[in-house]
Amino acid sequence: MTGRGESLIRKSLRKFRRDRFGMAGLAVVAVFGLVAAGVKLGLFCTLDQATTAVGPQFVRPGEYYSTIKDPGVRARSLLGTDIQGRDVLTKLVYSIKQAFAIGLIVSVCAVLIGVVLGCISAYFGGWVDALLLWVYTAINSVPFILWIVSISYAFGRGFLGVVVALTCTFWVGIYFNVRAEVMRLKEMEFVLASESFGASKWRIIFGDIAPNLTHLIFVFLSLDFIAAVKNEVILSFLGLGIAGEPSWGVMIANARLDLAAGKWWEVTGATVLLFVLVMAFNMLTDALQDAFDPKKVG
């Protein structure tokens, strides 16, 4: 039973709250997010700690070792140390911040660009639309990995290159969806009403039309976030990723030779954390899609 005049968003939120998988996904994402915020604020696992050796190399998980700071002190390593004697747990936690930095920056930028260009393209039509659609087709008809690899190559390896490469390719997904949706919306009565009141074009686009794109924005933020995190791993593996700081991708890429030598903890830790985050985000995306798609909300 929905009350009269209940807005679409409220209905969607209610539906979303009832989705157990979606809520579980959200909870896990929230925990990761809090940890990322803690690292960013410098509360624990700072860059310094993540890149400084604490003991001898390749201490196995759960083993005791003499710390470098004070050789008399025996400490227990929870998840072992890597080839340079750095604590794997610290690196893993620090990498959560890296994943969130890349995921947030890329998804927000890509969605912002996609929504603005999609609105402009659909609302104005004409040569602007034709031009943007042409760029969209060109980007979309080539495997993204090719753009990502060549852009991050052109921009130089490192954080900036990764972010620019991913943003430049990801905006097309939401652009096309927004464009189709705005094409539909701009023919509707409420837009006509605003037009007849003499509202400016920009007011109509961002005041009247854009609020109806909430579901697309939510879903694509979630999709792009996770695609960005996964692609960071791929880029790092190919040697085009983040340099100088730990990240799951760098850890997996560096530790692949360790695995053959029986040093399994670093690559396994990064893989498990990555899996949990992606899984939670996938569940969240499914739930968002179910709850916020206006066609499915009763």
Binding site: V233, I252, A253, L259, A260, T271, F275
Partner: peptide, 17 residues
């Protein structure tokens, strides 16, 4: 759904191992 969440790189490394 579980399969979708696995990282390509990780699958490759562990499968080879």
């Amino acid at each position: 759904t579980v399969g979708m969440a696995l990282s390509y790189v990780a699958v490759m490394i562990f499968a080879q191992y």
